[in-house]
């Protein structure tokens, strides 16, 4: 049971655009909210109003500071949830068979009825995408909102993961990454989407879109800030005497607009 399927019908997953994510945590909280009342045990919180509040979350948003060679330091917000890996080590280690990858769409799930809460799958996941529920003692992870995406009780347009639906900037995309003609696959191709920790050999399905170049003046222009726009080309010639020059030009300019 814990063997991985040879192939899956589809490869459903998320694509996260690091160029657009503002780190607002909306995806993380909406995920928590949807899943705490959803299938399976709630995502419990312990010491919720106390000294060491801690809870189970399926999606967490990190922030990194990146110092480029040239130019000022940059900030990248980085949401992370289960990547629904093709070669998911979390599945094969599971002794009870509770962890599995769906043949139909590749979603990696935990069957809470059979999980014994040993935690080995969380150890096996390189990404820190599995969390033990502190009260129910079962392993929790992103379900790719499997209880939404096919849910006949929801209107068609709402059959997307809760985090995708909530994300205010539209930095999260959902779809079939196994189908090269899907919108989401095209987006990945276009923007150079990449795997996290490819060296771990897990073949993640979820993809990250890199931040686009920032502070172009620093990198493109070799760190010097010479204007790419030539004001002299845009403007009328001016004389050395500023006020006179500008006000002199003014008459001609007014004539022109009539």
């Amino acid at each position: 049971m814990t063997t991985l399927p040879e192939t899956t019908g589809r490869k459903l997953g998320l694509v996260i655009d690091l160029d657009t994510c503002v780190g607002c945590h909306a995806c993380a909280v909406s995920c928590k909210e949807w899943n705490t009342g959803g299938t399976g045990a709630p995502l419990a919180d312990t010491d919720a109003y106390g000294a060491d509040p801690s809870g189970a979350w399926l999606n967490r948003v990190h922030t990194y500071e990146v110092q480029p060679q040239n130019g000022p330091a940059q900030m990248v917000h980085f949401p992370k949830s289960c990547l629904h890996c093709e070669d998911a080590p979390c599945v094969t280690v599971c002794p009870t068979g509770a962890s599995y990858k769906r043949v139909e769409d590749g979603i990696v799930l935990v069957n809470e009825d059979t999980c014994m809460g040993c935690g080995l799958c969380a150890w096996a996941c390189p990404y820190g995408a599995r969390e033990m529920d502190p009260v129910a003692g079962v392993m929790k992870k992103c379900t790719l909102c499997v209880d939404r995406i096919y849910n006949q009780n929801l209107p068609e347009e709402d059959r997307v993961p809760a985090c995708v639906r909530a994300c205010p900037t539209g930095a999260r995309h959902f779809g079939d990454l196994g189908d090269p003609s899907s919108d989401i696959s095209k987006l990945v191709a276009e923007r150079g989407g990449y795997d996290l920790m490819p060296e771990q050999g897990t073949k993640p399905v979820n993809q990250y879109l890199p931040p686009r170049q920032r502070d172009a003046w620093a990198s493109e222009l070799g760190g010097c800030d010479s204007a790419p726009f030539n004001l002299a080309d845009l403007a009328e010639p001016e004389t050395a005497d500023n006020a006179g020059g500008f006000l002199g030009w003014l008459d001609k300019a007014l004539e022109r607009i009539g």
Binding site: D17, D19, T20, C21, V22, G23, C24, T63, P72, A73, Q74, M75, V76, H77, P168, T169, G170, A171, P211, R212, Q213, R214, D215, A216, W217
Partner: peptide, 29 residues
């Protein structure tokens, strides 16, 4: 709106002593 600008390829310039949030995704800080 910022998501739209990103989609349209428009440029965002953030003027702020601190580069978090909206300023983090600005094309220039």
């Amino acid at each position: 709106g910022l998501g739209k600008l990103k989609g349209n390829g428009a440029k965002v310039i953030g003027v702020n002593p601190v580069r978090t949030g909206y300023n983090a995704i600005a094309d220039e800080w």
